[in-house]
């Protein structure tokens, strides 16, 4: 018989290295006289999209298109260290370094522009659609490229900057448990609907609804992609993936025996982006990567319990374990 159930799960997750470990990212920025800009960081984009995020931050600050930004990343010959692509930290940590750096170069450009346009303060200078000029007065504006060119060739001014950002955490006191071991924290909640076949013990995940607080979605498509990727890994974690060891050797070091989800194993995924701005993040953003997979596992295990009344306490919840738990329950055991 096939039985359906739903389960819910919540997660909170400390992003970054934590515990007072120096969590530092750095960036070099230059605004060019052809209407483009370059940012160099050590942050490696492994597909999660950090380079796109940095291009967006640069473009947002300078009133350019993300296509106008050259992101040079992960080249130890030329880029400053930005730590590892790990701990759900690049958008927050290196994003902050990029924002800090570009705002420094931008301020010097604003000061130059304020003199040029007889504007009393650099804050009165705005960047919009490739133009730079006095806020609210289109007659006093010109293409960014031309102004930077004029500054460079007639006045010898360069708009180059470097900045670092360090996440603020402290070690936890071992005496009283006090401290701020991580900052910021990411929050998420997922619901799973599953169908359990009581004859074969197989579980089909029908749908996952995933709500995640990421502060601010710098790139909505990428955020949805991270959630879907996390959910798929969570499905594998919950139902399929197990490293089998014999005397320290992995018995199944290949995809034929270590199964990961395929396109047919992933459920319908509905993602809900919760934007509760994080004061210390770039535009309020914080990380999403790892938290996306964590609640999936517990939501599926809870849904199995709701469907057939057995509690699986060792992952993955294989058909063998579910059948054994169902048989135990039949015999009058607790099913635990």
């Amino acid at each position: 018989m096939k039985k359906r159930g739903t389960g819910l799960s919540c997660t909170w997750y400390g992003t970054g290295y934590g515990n007072g470990f120096p969590d530092v990212s750095s960036a070099f920025v230059e605004i060019h006289d052809d209407g483009t800009a370059t940012v160099l960081t050590g942050a490696v984009d492994v597909g999660q999209g950090s380079s796109t995020v940095f291009a967006q931050i640069m473009a947002e600050e300078l009133g350019l298109n993300p296509e106008d930004i050259l992101v040079c990343s992960g080249d130890t010959d030329v880029t400053p260290d930005s730590g590892t692509t790990a701990a759900t930290r690049q958008t927050y940590n290196t994003g902050n370094a990029v924002l800090k750096a570009v705002r420094q170069a931008k301020l010097r450009l604003q000061e130059f522009a304020a003199r040029k346009f007889s504007c009393p303060s650099p804050e009165g200078i705005e960047f919009k659609e490739g133009m730079i000029g006095v806020r609210g007065d289109p007659s006093r504006s010109m293409p960014l490229s031309e102004l930077v060119w004029e500054a460079r060739l007639l006045h010898g001014e360069r708009f180059i900057s470097a900045a670092s950002f360090t996440a603020q955490t402290t070690p936890v006191s071992l005496e009283n448990g006090q401290g701020a071991p991580y900052w910021p924290y990411a929050f998420g909640c997922q619901a799973a609907e599953v169908e359990v076949d009581t004859e074969t013990g197989t579980v089909r995940v029908l749908k996952i609804v995933a709500a995640h607080d990421l502060g601010r979605a710098v790139n909505l498509t990428q955020a949805e992609g991270q959630i879907a990727g996390g959910v798929a890994q969570g499905v594998g974690y919950a139902l399929l993936e197990e490293v089998e060891l014999t005397e320290g050797r992995i018995k199944n070091p290949a995809f034929a025996k270590y199964l990961i989800p395929t396109a047919l194993d992933v459920p319908e995924i509905e993602s809900m982006i919760v934007e509760e701005p994080e004061d210390t993040g770039p535009y309020g953003a914080k990380g999403l990567g790892e938290p996306a997979m964590l609640p999936t596992v517990a939501a599926i295990i809870n849904a199995i319990d709701a469907a057939v009344g057995v509690r699986i306490t060792a992952l993955p919840a294989t058909p063998e374990k579910i059948l054994a738990a169902l048989a135990e329950k039949e015999r009058g055991g607790s099913g635990d």
């Binding site: 999660q48 498509t221 949805e224 990727g229 798929a232 995809f255 396109a263």
Partner: peptide
């Protein structure tokens, strides 16, 4: 049919959602 056709290609990042 799309799911079956794509099921021989593993992906670890995307969760297949946007691929499908």
């Amino acid at each position: 049919e799309i799911g079956v056709a794509m099921s021989g290609n593993l992906c670890r990042c995307t969760g297949y959602d946007k691929i499908l």
